[in-house]
Amino acid sequence: MTPLPEHLRQATRARTEEVDKRARAALAELAKAGKPISFTAVARQADVSTDLLYRSSELRTLIERRRAKRGSVATAPAALHGDSSTAAEVRALSARRARQQEAHHDEVTRLRKALEAAQGENLELRRRLARHETD
């Protein structure tokens, strides 16, 4: 993979800095207005994705600190389970779904084979019946 040209790296850096500034400004505005601080509220105010806020360790830490300081937002579902991120829950659910899919696939395969065998037996019995009736 070839490295990005310098002008693209600069554009990416500028965009990242601009998004960071918007998120910080949104966080400050929410705090100043006395509004509840959450990742969703900051994302809406800054017009950025919540995923971006979660992935940026610096912004994530700032939001979590402000939220904890204010105590204005209910504990996130991930924190209730002792996990600092919903990513672990998503991975666990995805793994569970994959196991279930595999089990269903195996069952469908087994049932198809049984159906094929039953259809073969049925065909054989119909042929025997047809021979018997003509005699």
Rank of each mutant, 00 (worst) to 15 (best):
A79F: 10
A79Y: 11
L80P: 00
L80H: 11
L80Q: 12
H81W: 08
H81C: 12
G82H: 02
G82L: 03
S84Q: 11
S84K: 12
S84A: 13
S85D: 01
S85H: 01
S85P: 02
T86I: 10
T86R: 02
T86D: 04
A87R: 03
A88V: 13
E89H: 15
V90G: 00
V90D: 02
R91D: 04
R91N: 04
A92Y: 05
A92P: 00
A92T: 05
L93N: 13
L93F: 08
L93W: 07
S94N: 14
S94A: 15
S94I: 07
S94L: 13
S94M: 12
A95K: 11
A95H: 07
A95T: 05
A95Y: 03
R96I: 00
R96P: 00
R96L: 04
R97D: 01
R97P: 00
R97F: 09
R97G: 01
A98L: 15
A98C: 09
A98P: 02
R99F: 04
R99I: 02
R99K: 14
R99D: 13
Q100D: 06
Q100N: 05
Q100L: 09
Q100M: 07
Q100E: 09
Q101I: 14
Q101A: 14
Q101V: 13
Q101F: 13
E102G: 05
E102I: 07
A103S: 06
A103E: 06
A103C: 04
A103R: 11
A103G: 01
A103P: 01
A103T: 02
H104M: 05
H105P: 00
H105A: 10
H105M: 02
D106L: 07
D106N: 08
D106H: 05
E107Q: 12
E107K: 10
E107M: 03
V108M: 06
V108A: 08
T109H: 06
T109L: 08
R110Q: 05
R110E: 04
R110G: 00
R110I: 04
L111K: 09
L111Y: 03
L111W: 02
R112Y: 03
R112T: 07
R112P: 01
R112V: 03
R112I: 01
K113Y: 07
K113C: 06
K113H: 14
A114K: 09
A114H: 08
A114G: 04
A114D: 14
L115G: 01
L115A: 07
L115K: 08
E116T: 13
E116L: 11
E116W: 03
A117G: 08
A117C: 10
A117Y: 10
A118I: 05
A118S: 15
A118L: 13
A118W: 05
Q119M: 13
Q119W: 03
G120V: 07
G120K: 12
E121Q: 15
E121H: 13
E121D: 15
E121T: 09
N122T: 15
N122E: 15
N122Q: 15
N122G: 13
N122F: 14
